[in-house]
Computed example of a mutant assay.
Amino acid sequence: MKAIPTVQNFTSDFVTTFWTPIFVGVFLAIVAYAYWPRNKAAFDEAAKMPLREEWRDHD
């Protein structure tokens, strides 16, 4: 028995074959950016931001 082509089948095939590899590529690019050695100082500084005591100016 042959599958009946429907909008749902076309949409599912389109998402699987086109968008999934794009999203995987975007995810890998974000991970590479986060672990790139040049960005370490900026991320370390951002990680310490909540711990800073800058409330002295607000007293």
Rank of each mutant, 00 (worst) to 15 (best):
Asn39Gly: 09
Ala34Ser: 08
Lys48Val: 06
Lys2Ile: 14
Ala42Tyr: 01
Val7Gly: 09
Ala41Ile: 13
Leu51Ala: 13
Val31Tyr: 02
Lys2His: 09
Ile30Lys: 00
Pro5Glu: 10
Thr6Trp: 02
Leu28Gln: 05
Lys48Phe: 07
Asn9Pro: 01
Phe23Thr: 08
Gln8Lys: 14
Phe14Asn: 00
Lys2Asn: 14
Val24Leu: 13
Asp59Met: 03
Met1Cys: 12
Ile30Tyr: 04
Val26Tyr: 01
Pro50Leu: 02
Ile30Arg: 01
Pro37Ser: 05
Tyr33Ile: 08
Asp44Pro: 00
Ile4Ser: 07
Asp13Thr: 09
Arg56Val: 14
Thr6Arg: 02
Asp13Trp: 15
Thr17Leu: 11
His58Glu: 06
Asp57Gly: 12
Ala34Gln: 05
Asp44His: 03
Asp59Thr: 04
Thr20Val: 15
Thr17Trp: 09
Trp19Ser: 03
Phe10Leu: 10
Tyr35Asp: 02
Ala32Pro: 06
Asn39Ile: 08
Ala29His: 00
Phe43Trp: 02
Val7Ser: 14
Val31Met: 05
Ile4Leu: 12
Phe10Cys: 07
Val15Phe: 10
Val24Asn: 07
Glu45Ser: 10
Pro21Glu: 10
Arg38Val: 15
Pro5Gly: 05
Thr20Leu: 15
Pro5Met: 09
Glu45Cys: 03
Ala41Pro: 01
Leu28Asn: 01
Lys48Ile: 06
Ala41Gly: 07
Lys2Asp: 15
Met49Ser: 14
Thr11Asn: 08
Thr17Glu: 11
Val31Cys: 05
Val7Pro: 02
Leu28Met: 09
Lys2Trp: 06
Phe23Pro: 03
Lys40Arg: 11
Thr16His: 07
Val26Cys: 11
Asp57Cys: 03
Phe23Trp: 04
Ala32Leu: 09
Ala47Glu: 15
Met49Phe: 05
Asn39Pro: 03
Tyr33Asn: 05
Asn39Arg: 04
Pro50Gly: 03
